[in-house]
Amino acid sequence: MGGGAIIFFLLLSLIYGILWIYCLIDILRSDFKDSNMKLIWIVVILFAQVVGPIAYLIMGNSTKATFKS
């Protein structure tokens, strides 16, 4: 592997790590419509490594509780 490929994979890993941490923190700080959804999303994030954070970003907002002021 050349130096460019190593830098590319390190950068990709860093971006994925930041995305994973962002999703995990967002799950922990959010309230959900169903009390079990928080645990379900954490399990999805942990065990579906590549698809989990992307699925949460796409479908997570629909499972969150909305508060009207």
Rank of each mutant, 00 (worst) to 15 (best):
I18Y: 12
V50H: 03
I18C: 02
L11W: 12
I6Y: 12
F32Y: 13
T63Y: 09
V50G: 09
L46R: 01
Y16G: 03
Y22D: 07
P53C: 06
V44A: 01
A55W: 14
Y22A: 06
I40N: 03
I25L: 10
I45T: 05
D31Y: 11
F47A: 02
A65E: 14
S35K: 11
Y56W: 05
I42T: 02
L19R: 10
G52Q: 03
S30V: 03
G2N: 14
I27C: 05
K33T: 07
L19A: 11
S62T: 06
D26F: 01
Y56S: 02
F47M: 04
F8P: 04
G52A: 01
A65L: 13
M1D: 15
V43I: 02
I18W: 11
S35N: 06
S13N: 08
F47E: 00
I15P: 01
T66C: 06
F9R: 04
L46M: 04
D26Q: 07
S13E: 09
W41F: 04
M59K: 13
A55T: 06
K38S: 02
S30A: 12
T63G: 03
A5N: 15
G2P: 14
M1E: 15
W41I: 04
G3R: 13
V43K: 03
S69N: 14
I58H: 07
L57V: 09
C23K: 02
S35V: 05
L57Q: 09
D26N: 11
I40Q: 07
I15M: 10
I18K: 10
M1A: 15
G3N: 15
G60D: 04
V44F: 03
F47H: 00
S30I: 02
A65F: 06
L10Q: 09
F8W: 13
L19P: 00
F9N: 09
V44E: 01
A48C: 13
N61Q: 11
T63I: 01
F47G: 00
S35D: 12
I6P: 01
L24T: 03
R29I: 11
G3K: 14
I45R: 03
L10G: 14
D31R: 13
L46P: 03
M59R: 11
L12P: 00
W41T: 04
D26K: 08
S62N: 10
A5P: 05
L19K: 11
Y56I: 01
A55I: 08
A5K: 14
L57F: 12
Y56C: 05
I7Q: 14
Y16K: 08
G17C: 00
Y22E: 08
Q49C: 06
F8N: 12
A5V: 14
D34F: 07
A48V: 05
I25R: 07
V44R: 05
L19D: 09
W41P: 00
G3L: 15
V43L: 08
I18L: 13
A55S: 12
G2H: 15
T63S: 12
R29T: 12
M37Y: 08
Y16Q: 09
T63V: 02
Y22W: 10
I54H: 02
W20M: 01
I54F: 11
F9K: 08
I18P: 00
F32Q: 02
I25H: 01
G2R: 15
V44I: 09
D34C: 04
L57Y: 08
K68V: 14
I27P: 00
I7F: 15
Q49K: 09
L28V: 07
N61K: 12
I58S: 03
N36I: 05
F32P: 06
L39M: 05
